[in-house]
């Protein structure tokens, strides 16, 4: 069997025995700066703006709802099953459908609707990133197939950056089968390094920080 062949060949090259413990690993290098919330919000919006993503800081749930309603107007949207979207009243905006539990129905809507609305498990201020832990409440395709993605995230989820995230979640695999970082709209520069947005994922992204 190739497995044992490969492992024994590696061991003989490295001069190791099966089951031999490893010396101490290099220490983990994680630094979490002290950044007040207002500054984190500013950083997030600036970083996302540089990537052509749009952001809005909503004072309360109603403002968030109104902003999303304005974007949806006249278009069809699918919302994930994240409870926070319900709390904001976003799932009752006309044109927004939610509550899908079947694979084919979800897929069909995501592939044909104009807008996908999600929340996010975390957001990272330094890079303007959304952290999506996939689950029954937050399926993957909602933030992936529709040409427009709107994420509505409470500011309590806004972390400084990657180092803080990996301090909170030292092993993401214990929380989800799939974690995705989304940093701005989908883009490509494969032809003549000319930037085009929305190649496979959404070309337009709005983040509402509540």
């Amino acid at each position: 069997m190739s497995r044992d062949l490969i492992l024994s060949s590696i061991r003989s090259s490295l001069g190791r025995r099966a089951g031999q413990p490893v010396p101490a690993r290099p220490p983990v290098l994680l630094k979490i700066p002290e950044v007040p919330l207002a500054r984190r919000i500013g950083q997030f919006c600036e970083a996302l703006g540089k990537l052509n993503g749009k952001s809005l800081v909503a004072k309360n749930l109603e403002e968030a709802r109104d902003y999303v309603a304005g974007l949806v107007q006249g278009r069809r949207a699918i919302a994930s099953n994240a409870p926070f979207l319900g709390e904001c009243g976003i799932t009752s905006i006309p044109g927004v459908e939610t509550g899908f539990t079947g694979r084919m129905a979800l897929r069909e809507r995501c592939a044909t609707y104009d807008i996908g609305i999600t929340s996010a498990s975390f957001a990272l201020a330094e890079t303007g990133t959304l952290v999506m832990l996939s689950s029954a409440e937050e399926p993957r395709l909602v933030s992936l197939l529709p040409p427009v993605h709107i994420a509505v995230v409470p500011t309590s989820k806004l972390l400084t950056g990657l180092d803080e995230l990996l301090t909170l979640l030292p092993d993401p695999a214990g929380h989800t089968s799939g974690m995705a970082f989304i940093t701005g709209p989908s883009r490509t520069a494969d032809i003549e390094q000319f930037l085009v947005r929305g190649v496979h994922g959404p070309g337009e992204i709005h983040v509402v920080l509540v």
Binding site: L162, M179, A180, F181, I182, T183, G184, P185, R187, G201
Partner: peptide, 9 residues
Amino acid sequence: LTVYTSFLS
């Protein structure tokens, strides 16, 4: 950071 980073387990 690239646009997408997927951590698949």
